[in-house]
Design a binder for these strands. Structure first.
Length: 526
DNA sequence: GTAGGGTTAATA
DNA sequence: TATTAACCCTAC
């Protein structure tokens, strides 16, 4: 089959939302694929993300795909949009919170720890380190202040039961779905229709115009076809097929390889030498490559990574799989990231990382005590609450996600009432709340009489009970904490906001009622 | 636990 | 004295 036709078909399949993901994947495996451009690489990554959206189940695959798209966009000079940043952040949060349970059963806490290690202490921390250590001025656009802020929150959930409870009361999955869908919609729109769709539309137009007596030339035909990645001078010339051939000669990026092989992500080589990759073997493939197992391939890549920087020329020594391999080298030392359905190779990588994380998690367990008392574990997991929790959380294993039956793209069976963060919305009743109450000595009972803070304890029950507290003006720190709490948790969840920033609000002995009153003051006047 | 009306005290 | 912020009370 003509390589251009293969490209057009693949582009159409990847760009079409109506083509089932399974069919697109199947075609990818049977087409004799040519070298690919960044557009197809991006489209394939988008398709992978859409696949997870359809299952309402986010894994690190989506994070990796978003990181890959960011690198492609940077190379192409495409701006990294706010929607993409928000989507990445939301998925990162969901990838951890999905394993979170404020009243964990056996091993539940360990799974959350592993997720935090993989996503936040591994992936995102490396981003931060790369930003700090990078001498080339490499900027990771996905590393936003919001993401860094979330890192602290997620980390604190490992030992702070209140944060843990607050996170589980937030519907991070729906938030991630919303953000990712918005990003996908925006990106699909910006990428425009596929070549086949454009050609079909154009042919209709040509037919109409021909019938009306107008003529259309080759140049006009070519100019009307979207042709990202191609020089303008080329796009202005003659036939579209010629353009596609020229583009193919000048670009070396295999979407198929992204999907089928390993992606060793690294920035500087992307910036300095574009994407260095193996030329995909033509039909029949490279015999040596086929004889080498993917396990060997993975080991050799990891070995190269362990040594430090993997020289570009070394890529030629890396045996290609049947579909090839993309090696993107930046000189950054890090584990090979797996972005594929290539289970033989990627599972080995994943297992290696998981073993490492599991061992570190086991080391942590004797040192970190579960902050929740046993009584909470027992008393709260009863009746309808238990049922609600079962709905709230999917089985705490990424592998189990594939078993979830999601017949429709927009269906999320494990959805819980959305916890709004909009100031104008009221928080939904919490599915998880403790019946236990442990008021601090500074915390007032709303039904009790009040006292001056300066009063001694001896004055309290027996003294004059109706004294008002001395007025304590709100500091800017308290106001900022309140605004942040309302933004993140939602207006009306004063108790949760109080707990979230207890270190700030406790200084002046604020109560949840104080927070409510203060917010009323802050929003009362324009 | 929260909302909303009422009260009090500081300040211009 | 009017305004405002902080605090109190009570119904839900």
């Amino acid at each position: 089959m003509n390589r251009d036709m293969c490209r057009w078909i693949l582009e159409f399949l990847l760009s079409s939302s109506v083509v089932p993901d399974t069919i697109a994947k199947k075609v990818c495996t049977v087409l004799p694929l040519p070298g690919f451009d960044s557009r197809l690489g991006k489209m394939l990554a988008l398709k992978s993300i859409e696949s997870e959206v359809a299952k309402a189940l986010f894994t690190e695959t989506s994070l990796e795909c978003l990181e890959l798209i960011e690198e492609i966009d940077c190379l192409d000079g495409t701006a990294i949009t706010q929607a993409m940043k928000e989507a990445y952040c939301a998925v990162a949060v969901e990838c951890s919170v999905r394993y979170l349970d404020p009243y964990p059963g056996k091993n539940a806490r360990g799974l959350f720890d592993v997720a935090v290690n993989k996503t936040w202490r591994g992936r995102i921390r490396k981003m931060m380190e790369a930003m700090v250590l990078s001498s080339s001025g490499k900027i990771c656009h996905l590393l936003t202040p919001e993401l860094i802020e979330w890192k602290d929150v997620i980390e604190s959930a490992r030992w702070d039961a209140e944060v843990c409870e607050r996170l589980t009361n937030m519907n991070t999955r729906k938030n991630a779905l919303d953000k990712v869908r918005a990003y996908l919609q925006e990106t699909r729109a910006s990428m425009g229709p596929s070549y086949l769709e454009s050609a079909a539309l154009l042919s209709e137009d040509v037919g109409l115009r021909s019938s009306s007596g107008d003529k259309i030339g080759d140049a006009e035909l070519a100019a009307s076809i979207p042709n990202e990645g191609c020089d303008k001078s080329v796009s202005e010339s003659a036939l579209v097929i010629d353009q596609m051939n020229i583009r193919e000669e000048s670009l070396h990026c295999s979407t198929n390889r992204i999907k089928e092989g390993l992606v060793v992500s690294d920035g500087s080589a992307l910036q300095n030498a574009a994407i260095c990759m193996e030329k995909a073997p033509e039909a029949g493939g490279n015999q040596d490559s086929e004889q080498l197992g993917e396990t060997d391939l993975t080991q050799r890549i990891n070995e190269a990574i362990r040594k430090g920087k993997m020289p570009l020329e070394d890529n030629h020594d890396v045996p290609s799989t049947r579909r090839g391999v993309i090696i993107i080298d930046s000189g950054k030392v890090g584990p090979a990231t797996v972005c594929s359905k290539d289970h033989n190779a990627s599972n080995i990588q994943a297992e290696r990382v998981q073993k490492s994380l599991a061992s570190s998690s086991l080391e942590m367990q004797p040192l970190v005590k579960d902050p929740l008392p046993d009584a909470l574990h027992k008393s709260d997991l009863v009746g309808s609450e238990l049922a609600t929790k079962a709905m709230h959380h999917e089985p705490p294993s990424e592998n189990q996600g594939t078993a979830v039956n999601v017949p429709e793209q927009n269906t999320c069976w494990s959805m819980v009432p959305y916890q709004p963060i909009d100031d104008n919305l009221k928080e939904q009743p919490s599915a998880n709340h403790s019946n236990s109450r442990h008021p601090g000595w500074m915390e007032r009972d709303s039904t009790a009489h009040t006292y001056e803070w300066g009063d001694s304890f001896n004055d309290l029950p027996g003294g004059s009970p109706n004294k008002r507290r001395k007025k304590v003006k709100w500091s800017s720190e308290e106001e900022d904490a309140l605004r942040e709490g309302v933004k993140k948790i939602g207006r009306g969840s004063w108790k949760q906001i109080l707990r979230f920033h207890s270190e700030i609000f406790n200084k002046a002995g604020r109560t949840e009622v104080d927070l409510k009153d203060k917010w009323r003051n802050l929003t009362r006047w324009p």
